[in-house]
């Protein structure tokens, strides 16, 4: 039981610091799980991270895998609820406030200020993902082709991902 409480405490704290998503607290998550609580080794942490990246869904689900590793299914529930709960509660209330003041001039000003930052950050993640994902020139070509197809066609991204998986299996990229 105390392990569950530790998981709840650790991940609900991380939830509030995860500005920009779960990946921004990854270093701290690593420190907590490996160095402080000794729940797993560094290489086990890396394997769980790779697994979370490979599976469909939000990257935040690395916390569910950590929970599974530490305490089984109750651990999954504890880490997932702790990681998504507090921030979701905050998002719910801020979102309601945001909607209530939809005609306020200040809201328009805040939105106009935040919009370019948001778009710059999305482009930045695209760049960072490219740098970390692409180890060979065919991989860069695949990324570039994907960008062009995304912009110019309405092709379902799942087809592109499936194509990428096949090229990966064949060892092309």
């Amino acid at each position: 039981m105390s392990t569950i409480l530790q998981l709840l405490a650790t991940f609900s704290m991380l939830s509030f610091f995860a500005i920009g998503g779960a990946n921004s607290v990854l270093p701290e998550m690593h420190r907590q799980a490996v160095d402080i609580h000794h729940w797993m080794s560094g290489s086990e942490f890396a394997a769980l991270f790779a697994l979370a990246q490979a599976a469909p869904g939000p990257n935040v689900l690395i916390v569910s895998l950590i929970g599974l590793h530490v305490a089984g299914l109750p651990g999954v529930v504890a880490t997932t609820v702790a990681m998504c709960g507090p921030s979701s509660l905050l998002a719910y209330h801020i979102g309601k406030l945001w909607h209530r003041f939809r005609d306020a001039p200040l809201r328009g000003v805040i939105l106009r200020g935040l919009t370019p930052i948001t778009i710059g950050l999305v482009l930045g993640s695209g760049y960072l993902l490219t740098r970390s994902a692409d180890q060979s020139w065919p991989a860069y070509v695949l990324t570039a082709v994907t960008v062009l197809l995304m912009i110019h066609t309405r092709l379902n991204p799942l087809w592109l991902l499936a194509g990428g998986a096949v090229l990966g299996l064949l060892g092309v990229v």
Binding site: A50, Q53, A54, I119, V122, L123, S125, G126, Y127, L129, T130, S132, A133, D134, Q135, A139, Y140, L142, T143, A144, V145, T146, V147, L148, L149, M150, I151, P157, L160, L161, G163, G164, A165, V166, L167, G168, L169, V172, V173
Partner: peptide
């Protein structure tokens, strides 16, 4: 598979940004 998926995933993110 992840190698290929990651390369496409990066392109999807970049394309969405554009």
């Amino acid at each position: 598979m992840l190698n290929g998926i990651a390369a496409v995933g990066a392109g999807l993110m970049g394309g969405t940004g554009v």
